[in-house]
């Protein structure tokens, strides 16, 4: 999903230090390195993906964000990115807490479980929805904690986390999410991109 990377890249200032948590193959890291003057690091759980990243010369450390974020000192990065991974953690709440500790700003993107197609699927088929962004069956999905844009918005408010910017992504289209259009955007967005600060 290139569009998501473009949005993330725009949120990041030049000459900043960036940590991509769950960096996968390092596509976003490479995109950022090519398009910005940034110092970018990665943390990834899959050995295969870490090897791929290192083969491409990326500074990626094998590790599990639920345990291995601890090694990064407080506010040691200008931005910490968590792209479409939050739902896969055992404890998303603790991970978010750690992200906000390590990064001055945190960018979280979530596949939106509130999208109308998902709602329609569940309503009419009565089955767990399978979509482009969420291609798994209920019995083999790594996504333990699905949420909607509204859910995450509420979570941040309840936990006193500052939301600087919220962006909706629907196909190639991006738009701002504001408190007044939140209900509607929660219906039409495939992806929600949040810029957060403690």
């Amino acid at each position: 999903m290139k569009e998501e990377f473009k949005v993330i890249s725009k949120l990041i200032d030049e000459k900043s230090r960036v940590l991509d948590v769950g960096c996968g193959d390092g596509i976003l890291m490479e995109y950022l390195s090519k398009n910005k003057v940034v110092d970018v690091r990665g943390l990834e759980i899959s050995k295969e993906k870490v090897k791929k990243c290192l083969s491409n010369g990326l500074a990626v450390v094998e590790g599990n964000a639920e345990y291995d974020l601890k090694q990064f000192p407080d506010l040691s990065f200008d931005y910490v990115i968590l792209s479409q991974t939050l739902q896969a953690f055992m404890s998303p709440e603790n991970v978010i807490k750690d992200l906000l500790r390590v990064g001055k700003k945190v960018i979280v993107t979530i596949p939106n479980f509130g999208h109308w197609k998902i709602r329609v699927d569940l309503l009419f088929k009565g089955e767990m929805p399978i979509t482009k962004n969420l291609p798994y069956e209920w019995y083999n999905t790594p996504n333990l904690h699905m949420c909607t844009i509204q859910d995450f918005y509420n979570f941040c408010n309840n936990k006193g986390i500052n939301i600087f910017k919220t962006i909706s992504l629907n196909g190639q289209k991006t738009s701002k999410i504001t408190p007044s259009n939140l209900k509607y955007k929660n219906l039409i967005s495939e992806l929600g991109i949040f810029l957060l600060e403690k």
Binding site: D39, R41, K47, V50, V61, E62, F72, P73
Partner: peptide
Amino acid sequence: NAIGADVGFVE
């Protein structure tokens, strides 16, 4: 990592 060095690691 504690000093922000450029580090890669794989097992």
